[in-house]
Nucleic acid binder design. Structure first.
Lengths: 349, 349
DNA sequence: ACTGGCTTCGAAAACGTTTTCGACTATATT
DNA sequence: AATATAGTCGAAAACGTTTTCGAAGCCAGT
């Protein structure tokens, strides 16, 4: 005999009583509860999750879908480590497990999602790398599965999301550059379908407009968010007859390649061209000159993701304010040397 | 009505038949199977995992326990991304899910493990960051849960593991250095309880011995495996009256800090001291002078982990060779500039 | 026409748990 | 003393699936 039956037999009580004791119900004598808890600890018993889930209709687990691809491995930074850690700590307080559900490609992502939902592997989901139009959001909304997206999207109706403050980033970056005399400001965006690129671009345009600077399509660079991508952009930059005096990069890795290409051309970031990176990361922090970029707490964002997801769970919604969570996550500018010059001082080659 | 009952009702067959059709049993007419499959696809039905697990006594999922801590976030590299990707692809071929189970601290790791095992969240486990004496291994062996450890350990009896070829790494690094005239060779090890440090140290000693070089405890540096740790080691190195002419680093991040500290002291890696890093990673690849280090395929290691774990599962053991897997994973030396000098050329300050 | 075997299907049990509901005891209230 | 009430417990149903086993139908062989 195994499981709860074994425990019940040992204690000469019914399995129902054991269950109630372990689940903190009130219709069980405090003395028997102590006995049950002691015996459970001694025998290392914990209720079988499958049986429990089947009966309760919920798994007490939430999934965090994350891309684990060869490219992700090559370009990876610590982005998700902090997020997962934060989300887990938030969910653990409510006795919820966090499991990371890996997928390998974008298409795989949707197939995996359908499987996960259909099989009821988890009660709720955190999805990331949101696309401008994202089938996952339609699907989850329609399937009535609680979820939160890391990244806004045009898809679906009003769904919960948290996204980084691209608007604020673009604004403070461009304010800073304009204050130093820059007018020719480029931007480097990812070439994938994540909504990030679109949102960042419109934020960039809006910020330019505020300063009366016309938008120049030739100053918008698109490419892979990798060191190689940054190198390529560096090449395009060098080749331009009228170079921008400043550039905004959405991924830190772009800075690595950009620096390299500029150095090859005898140009120096922070002297010949102002560079502002986006999110502070593990690689670019060792660049010289130091990269001006934006900082955020991954842990805190993870916690907020977890808590916001809790608010969407029926079982917890009473404890949380109602309304669909749609948050903008702030970042702080970290001044570096890479944009520390006024445009008058720029060398002309 | 939901689930398989709904599907059965729609098709005017019994739920047993639906189940058998979906599971590829032979006692179901090929026409009805087609009908069932079509209806399942149309309605987006997939069997509830809890019900299925309960009945079958297995979850069709394996867990990969990985540390997601603030420090891991700070020092993280892409190590696990490739591993998870590889393991998932190997397991998916056998219709097994891979879920990443995060934990935040070493102590947390064991508690989580107990919970996971007791609740039967997964059928098998991959554990990482194996300690010299690791309670998890004792526990899993005793609980009779199939598992494989990334990293050997003194604990337990004969359990399955795969570990990196520290022996080979130390040997080829030291052969290379000795061939260039180095005799004063230091090593930097992590200060935690992972077995890696112990194994690497003994490999280092053995390699020295082969060349008749006496072991000098003062040339063994221990510290956190971070940029700051590398910086500190650089300081200690500089302060020594009789500096080593070469140093082996077990973590790539150490190189970042070491380079920085050496540069501050007016010393240059690859000219004043030979540096060999251990595993090629996302950060150190941008160092100048380029770091001599060791390369491996994370994807392939992940695949091998997955397949080796499969071999330990009763349901699959027939398809795989018997015997406990204990593999040493090879790495290839990637020559860089950081050790590209003979000891005669070293400057004396 | 009867038997045997083969194919196809359905009824029902089982997996381990939670939860409802009724039963029982002991205590408090009239 | 009778009755209400609170506290404690056990029996049993239910969750959704897989799997066993027997039944039914069909065909071939005698």
């Amino acid at each position: 005999m195994k499981g709860i039956r074994h425990l019940a037999k040992q204690l000469n009580v019914s399995i129902g009583t054991v269950s109630k004791a372990l689940n903190g119900r009130h219709d069980v004598n405090e003395k028997t509860r102590k006995r049950v808890l002691a015996a459970a600890a001694k025998l290392g018993y914990a209720p079988n999750q499958s049986g429990r889930s089947l009966r309760q209709g919920s798994t007490n687990a939430v999934g965090f879908m994350i891309e684990f691809s060869p490219e992700a491995a090559a370009n990876s930074d610590n982005f998700f480590v902090g997020l997962v850690e934060g989300a887990q700590s938030a969910l653990a307080r409510h006795a919820l497990d966090l499991v990371v559900l890996p997928y390998s490609t974008q298409e795989d992502s949707f197939a995996q999602l359908q499987r996960i939902v259909a099989r009821r592997l988890v009660d709720a989901l955190i999805i990331s790398a949101t696309l401008k139009v994202d089938p996952r959001i339609e699907y989850l909304s329609h399937a009535n599965i609680p979820f939160i997206a890391l990244g806004r999207s045009d898809s679906g109706g009003r769904h919960p999301w948290i996204d980084l403050d691209f608007e604020g980033v673009a604004e403070s970056a461009i304010d800073r550059l304009v204050a130093r005399g820059h007018r020719r400001i480029a931007v480097a965006l990812p070439d994938n379908e994540t909504n990030l690129g679109y949102v960042f671009l419109s934020s960039y345009r809006r910020a330019l407009k505020r300063h009366g600077i016309p938008f120049a399509p030739k100053f918008v660079f698109r490419g892979p968010s990798s060191e190689a991508g940054g190198y390529r952009i560096g090449g395009e930059l060098v080749a331009l007859e009228q170079r921008p005096t400043a550039i905004l990069l959405v991924y830190e890795l772009l800075a690595m390649g950009l620096y390299r290409r500029l150095n090859e051309a005898g140009l120096s970031p922070g002297r010949d061209i102002a560079v502002i990176g986006f999110r502070e990361g593990p690689q670019a922090r060792f660049l010289s000159p130091t990269l001006t970029c934006f900082r955020m707490s991954l842990h805190d964002l993870g916690v907020t993701l977890g808590e916001s997801l809790l608010a969407t769970l029926p079982a917890f919604s009473s404890a949380y304010p109602v309304g669909t969570v749609q948050k903008i996550w702030p970042l702080q500018l970290v001044p570096g040397e890479s944009d520390d010059f006024s445009v008058g001082r720029a060398r002309t080659l």
